[in-house]
Amino acid sequence: MRVIGLAGWSGAGKTTLLAALIPWLNAKGITVSTVKHAHHDFDVDHPGKDSHTHRLAGAGQVLVSSSLRWALMTELRGTPEPALPALLAHLDPVDLVIVEGFKRDAHPKVEVHRAANAKPWLHPEDPAIRAVAADSRPPGCLPHAALDDIPAIGALVLEHAAAWPG
């Protein structure tokens, strides 16, 4: 399994890029999973559903299964958030895992930057950034591609993804 991250400020287009990049990779026969970091309280469950009731009642984990998908929810209940390696260990093997967020971790990353955000570049302060996808020319000499050039970004992702574990 190989891992690469997409790192950038909110509004840079990471999720939009992933939505285009995943089908491009799949068309090349590459299996892909993703890990998304949320900086806020989030919920994948809904009030009124049995699984929600189980979780609120105090279950540490709730697994929901159907003929189309299954999902495992784990309540941390005050324990520390797991580190990225621990989360990756829960995934089934695939060719490539793309991590959205976790921008302070040391896995290799492609910086996603949009000039209209008026946010600073993450590189060169982050040595784990190996390439850039942006709508403007990045400073420095990292390999880069235009934000809308999915084949070029895909090539950067495949070139810079690292074998996992670490």
Rank of each mutant, 00 (worst) to 15 (best):
M1D: 02
M1C: 02
V3E: 00
G5I: 00
G5Y: 01
L6F: 12
G8Y: 03
G8D: 07
A12E: 03
G13F: 04
T16I: 10
L17S: 03
A20I: 01
I22W: 09
I22E: 14
I22Q: 14
P23L: 07
P23Y: 10
L25A: 15
G29T: 11
G29N: 13
I30S: 08
S33G: 12
S33K: 13
S33T: 13
V35G: 03
H37V: 11
H39C: 12
V44N: 09
D45I: 02
H46F: 11
K49C: 03
D50L: 03
D50R: 04
D50V: 04
S51G: 03
T53D: 07
A57Y: 02
A59P: 01
G60T: 08
Q61W: 01
V62Y: 02
R69Y: 10
W70I: 05
W70N: 11
A71W: 02
L72H: 06
M73Y: 12
L76R: 14
G78M: 04
T79N: 13
P80Q: 07
P80K: 08
E81H: 12
E81D: 14
A83V: 12
A86R: 13
L87S: 03
L87W: 06
L87F: 08
D92S: 15
V94I: 11
D95A: 11
D95I: 03
I98A: 11
I98G: 09
F102A: 06
D105M: 11
A106K: 12
P108V: 00
P108L: 02
E111H: 02
A115G: 02
A115F: 03
N117M: 10
A118L: 12
A118S: 12
P124F: 04
P124N: 04
D126N: 10
D126M: 06
P127L: 01
P127K: 01
I129Q: 00
R130D: 01
A131K: 01
V132S: 00
A133S: 02
A133C: 03
A133H: 01
A134C: 01
R137M: 09
P139A: 15
G140K: 10
C141Y: 05
C141K: 12
C141E: 15
L142Y: 08
P143R: 12
P143I: 09
H144S: 12
D148H: 14
D149I: 06
I150H: 09
A152H: 04
I153G: 01
I153M: 05
G154W: 06
A155G: 06
L156I: 05
L158I: 00
L158R: 08
H160L: 06
A161S: 13
A161D: 06
A162T: 11
A162G: 08
A162M: 11
A163W: 09
W164G: 06
W164M: 08
W164F: 15
